[in-house]
Amino acid sequence: MLNEALSQVATWLKEGKWQLSWRMSINVSPIQFQQAGFLPMLKAQLEKHDVPASCVDLEITENMLLNDLSSCLEKMNAIKALGVHLSIDDFGTGYSSLKYLKSLPIDRLKIDQSFVRDLLTDKSDEAIVHAVIAMAKALNISVLAEGVETLPHYDRLREIHCFFYQGYYFGHPLPPSEFIAAFVHDLPKPPLS
């Protein structure tokens, strides 16, 4: 999947359809992340496709940190040293201690859709979303809400200062050409080399 995603970003970069400030998010399984060869493979794929590391956001789950936190931290710091972004996916559903959150080299927390789905009808879910946003802001970590499927959800999240979103309200998965046609408009042309 990493090879395919980076290949697509490389193509879009060459075609002038991708901006260097954009990030391709790629889920990494706990098994893949724990493999000894993961970091060398990541470096090799970035070099192979000539994609800037800053264009990549690896998403890991908080449960992954349970197995061996010190080893995970070492690998996460090495990934960050490459310039790759890191996100904790499905945040709030795992079992990792909040005390470790301050030491993790992460850029973004992705609030699990189970909290977003009932945000408008369940005061407990709204309180959890508020708490995650406040905590992340205090730790200088970006927050993204997953599973935003309606305008009222989108409006409420903006009201409580969550400004990054993902979900069917914005679009469904698309093939690359349809994604570009639907979401990328009038990008500046890359400089001629």
Rank of each mutant, 00 (worst) to 15 (best):
M76S: 04
N77G: 13
A78D: 11
A78T: 03
A78R: 06
I79H: 05
I79T: 03
I79A: 01
K80Y: 15
A81P: 11
L82F: 08
G83N: 00
V84A: 09
H85I: 02
H85G: 01
H85K: 04
L86V: 15
L86F: 12
L86R: 05
S87Q: 12
I88R: 13
I88F: 07
D89V: 07
D90L: 03
F91R: 03
G92H: 10
G92S: 02
G92E: 05
G92C: 02
T93E: 10
T93Q: 07
G94I: 00
Y95V: 01
Y95G: 06
Y95W: 03
Y95C: 06
S96L: 04
S96F: 00
S97D: 12
L98H: 11
L98C: 03
K99Y: 12
Y100F: 09
L101F: 05
K102H: 00
S103H: 02
S103M: 04
P105W: 09
I106L: 04
I106Y: 12
D107T: 00
D107W: 02
R108K: 14
R108M: 10
R108V: 03
R108A: 01
L109Q: 07
K110A: 10
I111D: 03
I111L: 10
S114M: 03
F115T: 11
F115C: 00
F115P: 02
V116H: 00
D118R: 08
D118E: 08
D118F: 11
L119R: 03
L120D: 01
D122C: 05
K123E: 13
E126D: 06
A127C: 14
I128P: 08
I128W: 01
V129A: 00
H130T: 15
A131G: 15
V132L: 13
I133A: 14
I133S: 04
I133D: 13
A134V: 15
A134Y: 12
A134W: 11
M135T: 12
M135C: 15
M135P: 03
K137M: 14
K137T: 09
A138G: 15
L139G: 09
L139Q: 13
L139K: 06
L139D: 13
N140H: 10
I141Q: 00
I141M: 02
S142T: 00
L144M: 07
L144C: 05
L144R: 10
L144H: 03
A145S: 12
A145K: 05
A145M: 06
A145L: 01
G147I: 00
G147Q: 02
G147F: 00
E149N: 01
E149Q: 03
L151N: 05
P152F: 15
H153R: 00
Y154K: 12
D155G: 09
L157G: 02
L157F: 06
R158Q: 12
E159Q: 10
I160N: 11
I160K: 06
I160G: 15
I160S: 13
H161T: 07
H161M: 05
C162D: 11
C162L: 08
F163H: 11
F163W: 14
Y165F: 15
Q166H: 13
Q166D: 13
Q166E: 10
Q166L: 06
Q166R: 09
Y168F: 15
Y169H: 14
Y169F: 08
F170R: 07
F170Q: 10
F170E: 07
F170T: 02
G171E: 10
H172P: 02
P173Q: 07
P173K: 06
P173G: 14
P175C: 09
